[in-house]
Amino acid sequence: MLIPCPHCGLRPSEEFTPKGLAEAPRPVIGGADLPEDATWQDYLHTRTNRAGDTDEYFHHALGCRSWVVVHRNTLTHEVYGATMASEFWAQKNQQPEQETGQ
């Protein structure tokens, strides 16, 4: 697989460390209220784990060391693109994505 890192361009997947599916944003810590247990549990453990189009965290460990979210297909291994993880949730919240398949 080749992954298009937003910084480094098209790089082989073995330069990256996969972290898991990006299905929910990290709960915000700080302020008076801690996140609900259920929110943490969902963020850490539970996944829709769709077969098909997914978003997944990768760390460009042997490159620029950025965290990126890779948009790819888990049935065909096709890679559509990648976004900086720091920008991913902001972008996603602007244009909520359609549920695709199961």
Binding site: M1, S13, E14, P18, L21, T74, H77
Partner: peptide, 13 residues
């Protein structure tokens, strides 16, 4: 291999 997949095949690395 490390990445999520439903394909019953992996990669060369």
């Amino acid at each position: 291999d490390g990445y999520n997949t439903y394909a019953q095949r992996g990669n060369l690395p």
